[in-house]
Design a binder for these strands. Sequence first.
DNA 1: CTGAAAGCGCTTACAG
DNA 2: CTGAAAGCGCTTACAG
Lengths: 343, 343
Amino acid sequence: MSSRKATSNDVAAAAGVSRSAVSFAFNNPQRISVATRERILAAAERLGYTPDPLGRMLRAGTTNSIGVLLPQRLAWILENPYYSRFLMGAGQVCDQEGYTLLLTPPLQDSVLKAIPYAAVDGFVVCGLEADRGEVAELSRRGIPFVLIDSDRVPGAPSVEVDDRGGAHEVTRYLLDLGHRRLAVLSMDPGAAVTERGYRGPLARRMAGIADALAECDLTMADVQLTEVPVTRAEGYRATRDLMAGGRAPTAILALSDILAYGAVDALQELAIKVPSEVSVTGFDDLSESAWFRPRLTTVRQPIVTKGRMAAEFLISAIRGEEQHPHQVLGTSLIVRESTTKPA
Amino acid sequence: MSSRKATSNDVAAAAGVSRSAVSFAFNNPQRISVATRERILAAAERLGYTPDPLGRMLRAGTTNSIGVLLPQRLAWILENPYYSRFLMGAGQVCDQEGYTLLLTPPLQDSVLKAIPYAAVDGFVVCGLEADRGEVAELSRRGIPFVLIDSDRVPGAPSVEVDDRGGAHEVTRYLLDLGHRRLAVLSMDPGAAVTERGYRGPLARRMAGIADALAECDLTMADVQLTEVPVTRAEGYRATRDLMAGGRAPTAILALSDILAYGAVDALQELAIKVPSEVSVTGFDDLSESAWFRPRLTTVRQPIVTKGRMAAEFLISAIRGEEQHPHQVLGTSLIVRESTTKPA
DNA sequence: CTGAAAGCGCTTACAG
DNA sequence: CTGAAAGCGCTTACAG
């Protein structure tokens, strides 16, 4: 038993047949006689032969794998329940269609650089807020891709959510309840983005908030905006700071359920009653939000559906079927127990 | 612009050089003159050429990707926070070492079948409770692998947690508090496993519980065992049933935090106070458990570390460095607010 | 029923 | 500094 991996050549030699026969034994049994086949299989077993997937893929021109091109390192992505949900949706389709899922984080901090190294039949591209050549690189590679959580790029298929409408609806709801001292707890857009304003879903949510404020003759200057990384601990910390400040809000509008959980944690610790003293809203409607106490009022976005559709569109593009240029999914306001009129 | 993807051949022809030169232009610039290089790059740009990753990988004999061989469909795996944590640990290492992560679910319901189709340099194998030839197939493929959450297989490297010790400790803790009417809320081991008793981590946890019971002259027959799929809703449902039964427990020992959350949900809905009327314990110590109300008493297992170690061991094996045959990580009982003496 | 050949796309010794 | 050749491992028309 040599240490080198056995190839179809070795098996062919051992069984006294050609490489074609070996391949047929594995992939096309009816093309060779039973006797030959058994001889080949026995030799393969003895040598510990297994067809090399890379050779197969190169030959077939297909990997049966779809890539998820991620905007951040894996450790951060997988910490975020939003991405778990999204990947679950994409995973459903992979399960169904027999694809594996390649998680592709930036290479040397560059999404662009990761593109040419992934052995996949297509990409779902996540959170590409500012296109820094990624779309061009993707087209150059000549494999299909679908954008999600991005700004719209002409000619690039995408699956989006009506973030603007969702943010408008929840803001309007709080305003209609009578709240005027609003705090917005937003996700940190990251250093790169600030120079030219918001991008992607966050920009749309901000616009939605502004829309609603304008309807009540208010502007963004009338709300307290805090931007933090999306973790429960950061939501907690930010809320403690907020409540310690001069003009405490009567409602906290979080742009993520995770941040809303942290906000409630902080308020409870400060013995401030939710919702009677301060209302709190989230965004996403993660499954925990229905179990959370108080049950969280939030904007539901169909995260799993988004993942599912993105993967479905991608796979039909891979198969050369119909093209789906853009798809916008609706949101809905889920009113539960964490909101009420201001005291 | 033809629809066929450009290859290094096309670029070579367009630039009037050999394919070697094209390769050098991309991978080894100093081997050719600046002028030639620029001519080649210009041609590549014009033709939209990008080196094909599959050709490159086949040649190099390396994919820069590690596979995670999963025991269930992606949709189920990604629904389970346990796996998110585990993948986060593995992801940390991938980030650091520049690997991508290929999620490889069973193919046609067979873990075995998925093995030869994944273009990876090695596998982390999860939850292989009963070895049905997977280990042999893995060895045959001739790439390194590390087992997680498995029974020990001779010669197969693994990273484990001291499930038995953890289960012993929490059971003993409840017993020492004075609880004698215990209900154990366990994960459903799946149809295949029951015939020959428990396997893997679940078997070890059961053994740990039995150890502790024996120390108080009790046996498994003295506890109420319920087995359900690991979701909060199932934990909730099972607990409602439990409390409706004849001899309601004074303590519920859940073998997963998720199930413990569901148990508390049910108790709260039944207006049964936790912990004063019924104590509840979990297993895992997910990050939410510290935020949960009442803060959950649970067995902490180092899930992220497990993922990290598995990936580290795998990568050093891929690099032909030292071998790490078996590693057992400790657990610890985290006592919080969900447990107290029986009423 | 079986084999020799071509080719998927790439890179790296080897000559010149 | 540059090119022709070999080869990574596979499969599938094409002959026989």
